[in-house]
Nucleic acid binder design. Structure first.
Lengths: 218, 218
DNA sequence: CGTAGCTAGGACCTGATAGTCCAGATCAAG
DNA sequence: CTTGATCTGGACTATCAGGTCCTAGCTACG
């Protein structure tokens, strides 16, 4: 098994600007469609049509649907991490966490809670059917949690958080509350459960503050 | 539109024991297969084979795949609620909540975190594609949360929980932690995130106890 | 310019899957 | 035991979705 793919290591296919643009259009369309319909319910023809491309282009840029889905996992993961980096990499206080929470809630409320988290829903759909996708998603979640726990570490180092706070566990708990909140909000078509869940997690973190925050949570 | 289904309201189809058994076998097989592979990735032929039935029986007992899935939502919802009633309807103390947590964690650890929650994964897969299934799932979640909040109400009435505790919100937060925990555990193939998430939610509830529990959490 | 190879269009193929149909077995009520 | 309905087996069909292929444009580079 595995007889070919080791050959010609240096030979990289030439790729034109147009090719890059097409590949991008395909990924973008897949991203949009699979976000609202789910991965399995989206067909290649849907994507072809939405991206204004053709079958041969799909198969020129991606070996098969599974590869496209894996590329999408990477693509969406990068998008989310980039967005989250913006909101979290300078996190140094509890109020920063509250702002972060508010941004997520507001974004989700625009859809009335529908669709959930782009990563979370892929994780549910793919974990039991594509090991490689599952492991990429798991790593993305870990990186996301790390953005949070890094912020909590900064807060602990600066004395805002007590020494006995465990940033990693707090970050995992917060991420679980976020994902569970997304899920319940999606089922209910209502953001409220997501708000309640995030507030619970934030309250829990608040209990590790060295001194109570100056302003109420909202 | 809708010209037929109103006719003959009293005429209920006769149904034999054998018919009931067959219908049960189909639902059971669908339940098992769709739990591990997901709803969309499971075919009717898979179910036919696993349930030792035939195509005509599938379509005799269910109008189409969508109806079968909806019946499964109901079936699985009833199973979960029955199981949860056992663990929650006599909940009166924090330690009872800890026992409940332990049972869920233990069950999930048998699969190394795989597959997640039977209801949660269906919610993710179906919410964006079958409104009726979504609403049934949402109601099931609400009923499940009510089992929890009823227990918390009992704790509050007995003085174990402070008066300012909000049982409904605490139950929603706990459910979100549970669902998010399932999701992350499934993605990681490891129960740990689920444990951390539930412990966070339990800690949060613990902060509303009138007096600290006699024993450590575990 | 010329040409090699990337890029594109879209018809076509193939397998899988949801759904149909009908003949025959089984059951329950009288 | 008769009769009419339910239940069952499994072959059959239609459709759809993934995947292939061949021809024709474009682009980059010499």
């Amino acid at each position: 098994m595995g007889d070919e793919q080791v050959a010609a290591p240096t030979k990289q296919r030439r790729i034109s600007q147009r090719g890059i643009a097409t590949r991008g259009r395909i990924l973008e369309a897949a991203n949009r469609l699979m976000f609202v319909r789910g991965v399995n319910a989206t067909t290649l023809d849907d994507i072809r049509e939405a991206s204004q491309t053709s079958k041969s282009q799909l198969y020129h840029h991606f070996a098969d649907k599974q590869e496209l889905v894996r590329a999408l996992v990477k693509y969406r993961g990068a998008l989310v991490l980039q967005r989250e980096r913006g909101g979290l990499e300078r996190l140094r206080s509890f109020s920063g966490l509250v702002r972060w929470r508010n941004a997520l809630v507001q974004a989700n409320s625009l859809n009335n809670g529908k669709y959930g988290c782009g990563l979370g829903s892929m994780a549910v759909e793919l974990s039991d059917q594509d090991e490689q996708a599952r492991s990429m998603l798991s790593e993305t979640f870990a990186a996301w949690e790390k953005l949070i726990s890094d912020g909590l570490h900064r807060m602990r180092d600066s004395g805002a958080l007590r020494q006995d706070a465990d940033p990693e566990k707090l970050a995992t708990g917060l991420m679980a509350a976020l994902q569970g909140g997304y899920l319940l909000a999606n089922a209910a078509h209502d953001v409220e459960p997501m708000e309640v869940a995030l507030d619970m997690a934030l309250d829990h973190i608040k209990s590790f503050l060295t001194e109570p925050p100056g302003d109420p949570t909202r």
